[in-house]
C-alpha cells in the first residue's frame, strides 16, 4: 500500500531540494537560454520567409533537446539517491515510518516535477518570444514538442534513478551519468552508423536497433507528430511509416512509456535490495 499523504509530503521535500539544487538551476537556465536563443535566431533568420515557428524549426529544437534534456534527466536522476545515501540522509529517512517504494516514488515525482518545471520555463519563454516577435506557430505542434520532451526528460530521469539505485557516491553518479549520456547521445549512434555501414544491415534492423535508444524514440515520435511523416529520416523512416502506418505513433509512445517505467522499476528492485547504505 502506498500512503499518498507520505508520498505528497516527501515529494514536496524533494521538489524543494531539487529547486535549490545548483544542477537544476544550471540546467534550467542553460536550457532556457539555448531554447530562447534558437527561437530568436530562427525568427531573425527565417521570419522574413514566414517559416519561423515551432512546427517549422523542429529540427533545431529536436537536436538541442536531444543534447541537453537527457543530460539533465540522467544527472539529476543519478544524484537523487546516491548523494543522499552518501550524506546518510537516506538512512535517516528510511528509519522513519515510510516504505522504500514511497521514498523512491516521492523522489521521482519530486525531481520530475522540478525538472519539468525547468523545461516548461525554457519552452514558455521561447514560446512567448516567438509569438511576440510575430513567428508563426501551430499550438498543437508546440504542445507535442513540449509533451514529448517531458517524456524524454522522464525516461532519462528513470535511467538516472536506475544508476543511482546502486550507487553511494555523488561523484560516481555524476561520472556514470555523463558517460551514459555520451553513450546515448553519441556512442550508440556512432556504433549504429558503423554497424550499418560495415555489416550492411537492412533498414528494418537499423530501425529496431535505433529504437533501443530512448533518444531515437523521442526523435521519431516528435518528427512524426509534427510532420506527420518520417520521410525526412530516409529509407528507414519510410519503412517505419509503410510498415506500421497509423499504429506507429502509438507504438512509439508505448516504447516511450516502457522507457519511463522499466528503468524505474528495475531501479526500485535494486534500491529495495540495496537500501539506505
Amino acid at each position: 500500500m502506498i500512503d499518498l499523504q507520505t508520498v505528497a509530503i516527501l515529494s514536496q521535500k524533494e521538489v524543494r531540494d531539487a529547486t535549490k539544487s545548483r544542477w537544476l538551476l544550471m540546467f534550467g537556465v542553460g536550457f532556457a537560454v539555448i531554447a530562447s536563443a534558437l527561437s530568436w535566431m530562427a525568427l531573425s533568420g527565417l521570419g522574413s520567409f514566414g517559416v519561423a515557428g515551432f512546427g517549422r524549426t523542429t529540427a533545431s529544437m529536436v537536436n538541442m533537446v536531444l543534447l541537453i534534456v537527457p543530460l539533465m534527466g540522467l544527472t539529476l536522476g543519478a544524484l537523487a539517491i546516491a548523494s543522499e545515501r552518501e550524506r546518510g540522509a537516506l538512512a535517516y529517512l528510511m528509519s522513519q515510518p515510510v516504505t522504500a517504494f514511497e521514498i523512491l516514488l516521492s523522489k521521482y515525482l519530486g525531481v520530475a516535477a522540478a525538472l519539468i518545471a525547468a523545461l516548461l520555463v525554457g519552452f514558455g519563454i521561447s514560446g512567448i518570444l516567438v509569438v511576440l516577435r510575430g513567428g508563426s506557430s501551430n499550438a498543437g505542434d508546440f504542445l507535442a514538442l513540449v509533451g514529448l520532451t517531458v517524456l524524454l526528460a522522464l525516461s532519462s530521469l528513470s535511467i538516472g534513478f536506475l544508476l543511482s539505485a546502486g550507487l553511494r557516491r555523488g561523484a560516481t553518479a555524476i561520472g556514470l551519468s555523463v558517460f551514459l549520456w555520451l553513450t546515448l547521445a553519441f556512442f550508440s549512434d556512432l556504433g549504429l552508423m558503423g554497424t550499418a555501414v560495415t555489416l550492411d544491415i537492412g533498414v528494418r534492423e537499423l530501425l529496431f536497433m535505433a529504437l533501443a535508444n530512448p533518444l531515437q524514440v523521442y526523435k521519431l515520435a516528435t518528427i512524426l507528430s509534427i510532420k506527420n511523416d518520417l520521410e525526412v529520416l530516409g529509407p528507414a523512416g519510410v519503412y517505419a511509416m509503410r510498415t506500421y502506418g497509423d499504429a506507429l505513433l502509438p507504438i512509439l509512445m508505448a516504447l516511450f512509456v516502457v522507457w519511463v517505467i522499466a528503468p524505474l522499476g528495475v531501479g526500485f528492485l535494486i534500491f529495495k535490495r540495496r537500501g539506505a547504505f
Binding site: L120, V131, S136, A139
Partner: peptide
C-alpha cells in the same frame, strides 16, 4: 511568405501556462 502572419495566441497562452505551471 510561406505562413501568413497570424498572432499565435494559442501558443502564447500555452507558453504563459507553462511558465505559470513552473
Amino acid at each position: 511568405l510561406l505562413d501568413k502572419k497570424v498572432f499565435a495566441w494559442k501558443t502564447l497562452l500555452a507558453s504563459l501556462a507553462f511558465v505559470g505551471l513552473a
